[in-house]
Design a protein around this nucleic acid. Structure first.
Lengths: 248, 248
DNA sequence: CGTTTCAATATGTATATACATAATCGCCGT
DNA sequence: ACGGCGATTATGTATATACATATTGAAACG
């Protein structure tokens, strides 16, 4: 199997060896270069590959195993796992589900789609250290006739290469990503915000009106996958607001 | 500070040293013996404590740091972190929120509360290796006058000692646990089930009627915290059912 | 021919060691 | 006093080594 020589990927600034092995291998798995069932190189081969000790390789592989990307079998080697079934890990805030739970018809509309090299802001949002290609998407989710949520999403194309070929006209990025990327961790942030002109226009509310913003960053084995920001008009969507303080 | 001598905790069967250090320390943190801000022993002290090498201690502490239970500062030591704010990590399937999102009045009722030594089944559900005290709770969540969901919960008292003193008459276990236990990982399982007599009686449906079962296991830094099973009558709650296959 | 045994192999865990890095403390000179 | 600078200290990362353990595959045996 053709492995990328470590020298070829030397664009990374000053990651630890351990981190580099980890991200190299996750990238190969997430990109599909190493499909499920594929036997990844033995520890002693990777030792030669990266010219480092077995302990370092072992630490990285153990971490990948803990993250669920690979499965390790004594005497046999380490194998890429089947992508985790969707039932195992739930995606929160699937807008379709939220909308339909309210008994309203759901509709999705893609507004913008832009492939670009990650800006500093993109990297901050995604939690990326190095620069690379990203896909920026802006979409609207409707509940009946009314705009229900504005979605601003960044997809890390280094982690999910196939997203570059998807127009996202008929499918929302969220559902598309589920099942394709076995995400291992997610971080949420919720806050209130006044709608600026762009948002107000998109959501058909008044500029300055309060909005609820839910941001989620998703990783797959230390590898940033996506950052998404859902913006809800406060009046039409008080649901998530109850998460914040109360709980009495 | 008085540390529990490793010899005193020798009831563990054959955990690796690394695992033992990890669970010892998480237990102290989760039980409150080492409060937020407390400086845990230095690596070289733990080295003496467990008579092992610094590498082993280091690996365990690094893992605890990654899980968010402690914060490590060079030259200063390692410190117990403030429990993660509720906004940082969302609790899914909070029944109150689900019910109120439907526009119905919410009510909670505790049915049973039983403190016992964990059975084999309890341990399997929680993912515990060793035996220990657990709290078994059964509760009902109402939407208006109708039962909305039956909750069967196990709480690992080794991880959440204070739960032993709570009657859970006026507060549901879910909200109670949030904010008290900084959970780091959760696993979900969704399936369909026919209601047996007990469930049918509790939910006021016919025996054999289809139910949706959502199970969640929660960990805090490798430490099993709780297992909960929500049982919804299929007709009254089609929301989560949409998670399963479709997504086309 | 089927079963048992044994050696080979890949991972699992632990050790001792070394050096890098960041943050703090205290000394010292102005 | 005060500000800078170096020594100290705790963690971060990596190495080489050793032995344990599980599993496979093949040889030995009844």
């Amino acid at each position: 199997m053709t492995l990328v020589e470590p020298d070829d990927v030397d664009s990374g600034e000053s990651l630890s060896l351990h981190q580099r092995i980890l991200s190299d291998i996750s990238e190969k798995i997430l990109s599909g270069a190493w499909p499920p069932g594929y036997r990844i190189p033995f520890e002693h081969e990777l030792t030669a590959e990266y010219s480092c000790s077995r302990m370092t390789v072992n630490k990285a592989l153990s971490q990948l195993a803990k993250a669920g990307l690979i499965e390790r079998r004594r005497r046999s080697g380490s194998f890429v796992r089947q992508p985790q079934s969707q039932a195992a890990v739930l995606e929160l805030h699937d807008i379709r589900i939220e909308v339909e739970a309210l008994g309203l018809p759901y509709r999705y509309e893609r507004l913008e789609r832009l492939k670009r090299r990650s800006s500093a802001e993109d990297r901050a949002l995604l939690g990326l250290s190095a620069s690379g290609p990203v896909l920026a998407l802006e979409s609207l989710h409707f509940a009946g006739e009314r705009p229900f949520a504005l979605e601003q999403r960044l997809i890390n194309l280094s982690a999910v290469a196939e997203a570059a070929d998807e127009e996202f006209l008929n499918i929302a990025p969220g559902p598309w990503l589920i099942g394709r990327v076995p995400w291992s961790e997610a971080e949420h942030r919720i806050r209130a915000m006044a709608a600026d002109d762009t948002i107000a226009d998109a959501l058909d509310i008044e500029a300055g009106a309060p909005c609820l913003v839910v941001e989620r960053r998703t990783w797959s084995a230390e590898h940033p996958v996506t950052h998404v920001r859902f913006i809800y008009p406060a009046e039409s969507h008080t649901l998530v607001a109850r998460f914040t303080p109360s709980q009495g």
